[in-house]
Simulated assay, not measured.
Amino acid sequence: MHPTIRLNNGVVMPALGFGVFQTPPEATAQAVETALRTGYRLIDTAASYGNERGVGEAIRASGVPREDLFVETKVWIDDYGYDETLHAFDKSTRKLGLEVIDLFILHQPLPTAFDRTTGAYRALEQLLTDGRVRAIGVSNFMPDHLAALLERAEVIPAVNQIEVHPYFTQSTLRSANAAHGILTQAWSPIGGITAYRGDETRSTFTDPVIVGIAEQHGKTAAQVMLRWHLQQGRSAIPKSVRPDRIAENFDVVDFELVDDELAAIDGLDTGVRGGPDPAEVTLEKFSREIPEN
């Protein structure tokens, strides 16, 4: 049985999900259909990925009842501001073909225009009040961003989706999330981002510590890393377009890591981020118009 997590507002979500970051729009529907057939019930997308429509197509084709699915998507920074974010919700629901989004997230903190960020978050709070979303959250918010948001927010975010993998564990940020009852959801949970943005001479998939633990359990390195997340109470959203990898990443509930193994994986942290530094995300550098349809 795959684990679930109860969010700080009482909503229950699957701990393990399926992500579509960098999945081409033309490949998204097939990948998500495969994931749903495999058994995934949490699907993560974002307006800036350009593939919300493919996610919606897969949901409709799957035959899985809507009430059995947990769908989350994210607002991009170009659509921050109260009215703009309400409109961003309409764009996303139209592309997804859904009336209600289970988790609606601000994609970045946008520290150089934080008033727009807080305006966007007020829109999320309104959508929650109106019952158009079941939970609201943030992504890539560092402790100072969280503190600034919470000074003005009425609703504590349910989730902070951040880069977490064995080479970048963000323990301080995870502690800040936990202090506020905010779930940490890991993007790039098995360190795939390090392969194309980080040190190509070192990979989580071939790391001797992780591989050694995997051999002890008859599992793959990816499965061990996902188990590490789940046992430490995080949500994780691995991505793939390959059916064998999609199935492999889901097959993580029939073994358990011992404390020494969890600690050994924790000890691999390099402190080196693979994705963009949230402090450096600005409209000037990262602007991306989100189309209406």
Rank of each mutant, 00 (worst) to 15 (best):
D144I: 06
Q126S: 12
R37F: 01
Q223S: 04
D266H: 14
S235A: 15
Y121A: 06
A88V: 03
F114C: 09
G218R: 01
G97K: 10
L106C: 03
V159H: 01
F21W: 15
M142K: 09
R53V: 13
I59R: 01
T85A: 14
M142F: 04
T23I: 15
G192T: 06
G233M: 11
P243S: 12
A158T: 10
S203G: 00
F141C: 07
D254S: 15
H229D: 06
V32N: 06
R288H: 14
P111L: 11
L257Q: 06
E125N: 04
D102F: 08
F89I: 04
Q231F: 08
R66F: 07
I210Y: 08
G274P: 12
G198M: 07
Q170V: 05
D115L: 07
A279K: 14
I237D: 02
T85E: 01
T45W: 10
L69Q: 04
F21T: 01
N160I: 10
D266R: 13
Q223G: 09
I5E: 01
D269W: 12
V133W: 05
G274R: 11
P278M: 01
A186L: 09
T4N: 14
H2S: 12
H107S: 08
T28V: 05
T34R: 02
H107L: 01
L42P: 00
R242H: 15
P109N: 09
F21I: 02
I265P: 06
R37E: 15
I190M: 14
T34Q: 10
P189I: 12
G56R: 00
T172E: 15
I5P: 00
R94M: 02
A58P: 05
T270P: 10
A61V: 00
G63A: 07
P157S: 11
D244M: 02
S175W: 02
L96H: 12
G10C: 09
D144F: 08
L173S: 02
H180D: 07
V100W: 04
L16T: 11
I43P: 00
F255M: 07
V258G: 13
F104L: 05
T169M: 12
T28D: 04
S139W: 08
T112S: 12
V272R: 15
G131R: 04
R116G: 09
E284A: 13
I162A: 13
A58F: 03
L268A: 08
D244F: 05
P111Q: 10
T206Q: 07
W76T: 00
R227M: 06
V164Q: 00
V224Y: 10
F89R: 05
G233C: 11
P276E: 13
H87R: 14
N8P: 03
D83Y: 07
V258P: 00
A31I: 10
T270Q: 13
A178I: 04
V55L: 07
R273G: 03
L226Y: 03
F21D: 00
S287P: 04
P243H: 10
G17Q: 00
Y80G: 00
R41M: 11
D251L: 09
T73E: 06
P276H: 14
R132H: 09
L36M: 05
